[in-house]
Structures are given as structure tokens and as C-alpha cells.
């Protein structure tokens, strides 16, 4: 008998929770393929290490962008391989709950459930990421009080107000930490004439990226290819210039939080001032982001204990109480 699964199919990472066991897989959402034969050469961590370092006939791709499936066939193959790795076969077909961005279209919704069913799931249901994050972050969403969750992922940022087990207000933008990486890449190309890969851009963001001024700021040295000469070149980057470079995506995220606050009913708004907002998702780890949101909204922001796992743990709770919580699936609610 197959154990039911909860999957956080993120733009950046895919996490799998197995009923009764906990998190059994946490890998980057990357697949490496042989361009000529179409064969899968690696998935997850192994494929992630190949990004930008493959010979011409190998391509390492992220099949999800902005929280949406950009390549249905590759996503299906990736899900199939991930499910195989956690023990799903054609004889053991589990029920699967998949976390998806709340703003996905009907077509995208169908693409995800079809991909999971074809990959071996007996039944596939979807749940909104902010709802799953609120459950996983242990917020009292069963009570008639306002709980606000900000989930910043690789491709999407979502803010939701949850009370009595349901979403009261929601705001989502297709901007996430990959857009911050892309902004860094563009800045270095434009201002320093150097081409860098997406992994280097990510490393710069982790090393010196920030959304607001922080106490311990340091510079970083970056090596890339000079666009004029084609030779390797080193430049020194300051936190201020990276802050300026990522201002656009960061301000889009902050603006969406403000819009969600404005949509919330006044009774619940009072609760946020006391209880604060909860920040989850890998993008929430950007230095100074919590402080920046706090400054612009005047509402306290708290970081979840497990920002990267909150969503899958929430979906895991749903799979543990499948019958009681099946009314929460997308498309089921009236």
C-alpha cells in the first residue's frame, strides 16, 4: 500500500512529505537532459550542479518558471523520477496533495494535476501555498483571528490573510527570488560589462544582497567574463549597489504585501498589529527584507522557524488529515 504524499512543487526546490514519515525529499527543481536523445541524465541536486556548466548536448533546465509549468513534458518526467525516488511505482499509487501558487490559471492547475497523475499518483489535489504555509508555520488558523502569511518563493510572492481555516484576502505577484538574481545579473552586465551565470548571481545575493541597510555589510568580489575582451575579469561589488540593483523586484514584493493589507477586513487588520505577519519561503531569507516590510507597513514581521519547509509541512498535515481537510483543496471550496 502506497503512503500518501504532499509535494511542494516550487520554482526553486521540490520537497516531498510522506504520510507518517515526514519530509523524505528536498531537491532543487532542476532536470538535466541529453538534447540529442531526450534522455534524463540527472535530477535535483545533481542536475543543479550542472547549471551553466554543461557541454552543448546536455541541457540543465528548471521546468517551472514563475510558479507555472513552462514545459509540461519535462515537468511530468521530473515528477515521475522524484516519485520513483520516494518509492512510488505502478503498483503503489498514492494520493498526492500538491502546493501551487494561488494565482495559477485553470490551465496551469490542470497541467499540474495531469502531470502528477501521469507520473503515478492515484489522485492529485492542489492546495494554495500560503494556506499550506500558514498550517506549516503553526499559525492559529482555526481561530477567528487574522493570520497574515507572506510566502516569497523562487518565482512568486504571495500574501494571504487567513481566518477560520479559509483565505480572507490574497495578493500574488509573479516576482520572486529568481527575479532578484536576474536583476543582479543585468546590473553586473550593464554597469561592469561582465557576464555572470545565474548561480553566481544567487551567490552574490546570498553574500551581500539586502532589501534594507543592515549592520554588518561587506563587499564581494565577483569573477565573470568580460563582454568586450572575452577574458575573465574580477570586480568588487558593494551592498549599496546590489540594493539599488534589486530595488525593482523587492519593491514589487513589498507593494503586494501593502495591497493585501489594504484588502483585509478592518476587524482582522487590528489582529495583525498585535500578532504581526509571518514571513516564509526562501526569498524571505533576503537580508533586511523583514525590516523593510515592517518599515513600510508599520506591522511587525516575524520569520518562520522553518521558512523553506513550512509549505510542505502544511501540505503534509493536510495529507495526514485527508478526509477532514479535503474541503480545502483548490476547486473544492464553494
Amino acid at each position: 500500500m502506497a503512503r500518501d504524499l504532499a509535494i511542494d512543487l516550487g520554482t526553486a526546490n521540490t520537497l516531498v512529505y510522506m504520510k507518517g514519515k515526514g519530509i523524505v525529499l528536498n531537491e532543487p527543481s532542476v532536470i538535466a537532459l541529453n538534447r540529442q536523445t531526450g534522455e534524463v541524465l540527472a535530477t535535483g541536486r545533481e542536475a543543479w550542479q550542472m547549471i551553466g556548466r554543461t557541454p552543448g548536448y546536455i541541457v540543465a533546465v528548471r521546468p517551472l518558471r514563475g510558479g507555472a509549468i513552462t514545459d509540461f513534458e519535462i515537468t511530468e518526467r521530473m515528477i515521475r523520477l522524484l516519485l520513483q525516488r520516494v518509492g512510488v511505482s505502478r503498483f503503489t499509487r498514492p494520493k498526492v496533495v500538491i502546493c501551487v501558487p494561488s494565482a495559477i490559471t485553470e490551465v496551469e492547475r490542470r497541467a499540474v494535476t495531469d502531470a502528477a497523475r501521469r507520473a503515478g499518483a492515484a489522485d492529485a489535489n492542489l492546495i494554495e501555498q500560503p494556506m499550506a504555509a500558514a498550517i506549516g508555520a503553526d499559525l492559529p488558523i482555526d481561530e477567528p483571528v487574522g493570520n497574515m502569511v507572506i510566502d516569497i518563493g523562487g518565482g512568486t510572492s504571495e500574501t494571504a490573510v487567513i481566518s477560520l481555516g479559509g483565505i480572507v484576502a490574497l495578493e500574488a505577484v509573479r516576482v520572486g527570488s529568481f527575479d532578484i538574481d536576474a536583476a543582479i545579473q543585468n546590473h553586473i552586465r550593464r554597469e561592469h560589462g561582465i557576464a555572470i551565470g545565474e548561480r553566481t548571481a544567487e551567490e552574490i545575493k546570498i553574500a551581500i544582497g539586502s532589501a534594507a541597510e543592515t549592520v554588518d555589510e561587506a563587499t564581494a568580489e565577483v569573477r565573470g567574463r568580460d563582454l568586450m575582451s572575452g577574458l575573465p575579469k574580477t570586480v568588487v561589488l558593494t551592498p549599496e549597489e546590489i540594493r539599488d540593483a534589486i530595488e525593482d523586484p523587492v519593491s514589487s514584493i513589498v507593494a503586494s504585501v501593502v495591497r493585501c493589507l489594504a484588502k483585509a477586513p478592518p476587524e482582522l487588520s487590528q489582529d495583525f498589529l498585535v500578532r504581526g505577519m509571518y514571513l516564509v519561503g526562501g526569498g524571505g531569507l533576503l537580508r533586511g527584507l523583514a525590516a523593510r516590510i515592517e518599515r513600510e507597513t508599520e506591522v511587525p514581521v516575524r520569520m518562520s522557524n522553518v521558512p523553506l519547509e513550512a509549505v510542505v509541512l502544511g501540505a503534509g498535515h493536510v495529507i495526514e488529515h485527508y478526509d477532514a481537510l479535503k474541503g480545502m483543496f483548490m476547486g473544492v471550496r464553494r
Binding site: 482555526d142 481555516g165 509541512l313 495526514e320
Partner: peptide
């Protein structure tokens, strides 16, 4: 049933796992 399943008591197993991870 839905509200009860979302209570902190019902979520204890998952929250314990959260604590374990953190």
C-alpha cells in the same frame, strides 16, 4: 471537522517535526 483538524492539538505531530527540523 475541518476546523478541529486545523487546531494546534491536531497539528502537534507536524509542529513537532517543524521543531525537530529547526
Amino acid at each position: 471537522r475541518q476546523i478541529n483538524a486545523l487546531s494546534s492539538d491536531a497539528r502537534k505531530n507536524v509542529t513537532d517535526r517543524v521543531r525537530q527540523i529547526s
